[in-house]
Design a binder for these strands. Structure first.
Lengths: 232, 232
DNA sequence: TCTCCTGTGTTGGAATTCCAACAGAAATCT
DNA sequence: AGATTTCTGTTGGAATTCCAACACAGGAGA
């Protein structure tokens, strides 16, 4: 369990919990560790909505798939992030979304009712956990507000640029790495991957940004025409 | 204050609070009543994100406007609904959204910090309020999940039908009333009003639904060709 | 009753997206 | 290293949306 201390200590859900309390806390919450492997589901739509997950290593994404197989990515989660709180706290029986691993790793599974219900030991961390949970739910609302802002833009280019500018602001640098590949980004923004790729190509050629894989550098003050050479 | 008892008693944020506690609770929370009039802002983007609002009468909508004046409706709120919790609980300084009245009425304004911080009187209702707040934040997450699902549909028709089917399910009847006009619905679903109207017309003519103003009746089992008369 | 105003439906051309298909680059596996 | 698979960018025609403009209905108010 010690190998996860650095992750857990930076996890917003456990903020303020002392190192020596973890052992008893995780026991009290009936925490389980689940290995996850790339591409495999962690939760599937329709599963009971009782568990809360915390990404320990690797990465997961929360998705909604429709009849036609179109995938909508709701959130992209990295180590320290938690998922599923909203559904269990709202008292849903079944999950309306699925969660898939996008990278091998491990998640911590907790029973949400053990967080909300004070246990017989009246553990000190319960009220702290509830405060953190509240904070985390508010934070998730903000994430959705942002996502909706991206999706509300009219064109693919506007959705993309609104997202990238937000990323630059969040990471406090015009140079940054996004947490996903092109397909996932497209599914998150609600656009066609190929159309998005085309827009990226245009923006690149026009000198507004550079990108390679998940790395980006924006030139928000204006195009740098370094790459603007003769088109073939 | 008595005239709002029926609203307050059904407000999820105040669930479980006894009638005789309201007076002292509202005092302790430093609650204020604000009259609102149709079309006027309640909060504006950039305002301090400290207050939580509860709709007492009338209605409000939470919106994001962009540079070009395109409006995105985040949520449509009716008496008993609360707004702004997420931003204050997440500790934002400034509101990233605006709130407008869509109908004359009144809202109750509370200081969120007074809910989260236990007061010196150790009022009984504090822990209850925090529980309710948590529940409400989780519920809002669900609302966003639904909204994203509508917006993720490919076509205007799919967005519209996904929304209407959800409404029918929520109101447990194929016949229901939506809480807004066409323009607001379009801004909520992220589509053009005129395109949406056109789709509504097609669906009506094909016998999939009937509608008049905010009233709808779905025929999910298949078209009823009552109205399918000779096109002019 | 008449007028004004708001809300809704309709239309047509311009702009954008969707979709399928393909090619090259990059990563992974053996 | 070589083979295989995944990821990314590109392209072109079909489908859809966007936008502005207009017509009409119904309600509010004079």
């Amino acid at each position: 369990m010690e190998k996860y201390q650095s992750v857990l200590s930076h996890c917003p859900l456990f903020a303020g919990i002392q190192a020596e309390e973890w052992q008893s806390m995780l026991g009290c919450l009936d925490a389980k560790i689940l290995p996850i492997s790339k591409g495999e589901p962690v939760f599937l739509e329709g599963d009971p909505a009782r568990l809360v997950g915390v990404v320990l290593s690797g990465g997961v994404q929360v998705v909604q798939d429709d009849y036609y197989g179109n995938r909508s990515v709701l959130s992209i989660l990295q180590p320290g992030d938690s998922f599923g709180e909203a559904f269990s706290c709202a008292g849903l029986n079944k999950l309306p979304v699925s969660v898939y691993a996008v990278k091998d790793g491990e998640v911590l599974l907790l029973d949400c009712r053990r967080i909300l219900t004070l246990c017989s030991h009246a553990c000190r961390f319960h009220s702290l956990l509830i405060q953190n949970l509240l904070q985390r739910l508010a934070q998730k609302n903000l994430s959705f507000t942002q996502k909706v802002r991206y999706m509300s833009q009219k064109t693919t280019k506007d959705k993309l640029m609104t997202y990238l500018l937000d990323q630059a602001k969040q990471q406090q640098s015009p140079e940054f790495v996004i947490p996903c590949d092109r397909q996932t980004l497209a599914d998150y923004l609600g656009v066609e991957r190929s159309a998005m790729s085309a827009e990226l190509g245009k923006l690149k050629r026009a000198g507004w940004l550079e990108t390679k894989g998940s790395w980006f550098r924006l030139h928000p003050s204006g195009p740098v025409n370094r790459q603007n050479e003769e088109p073939i």
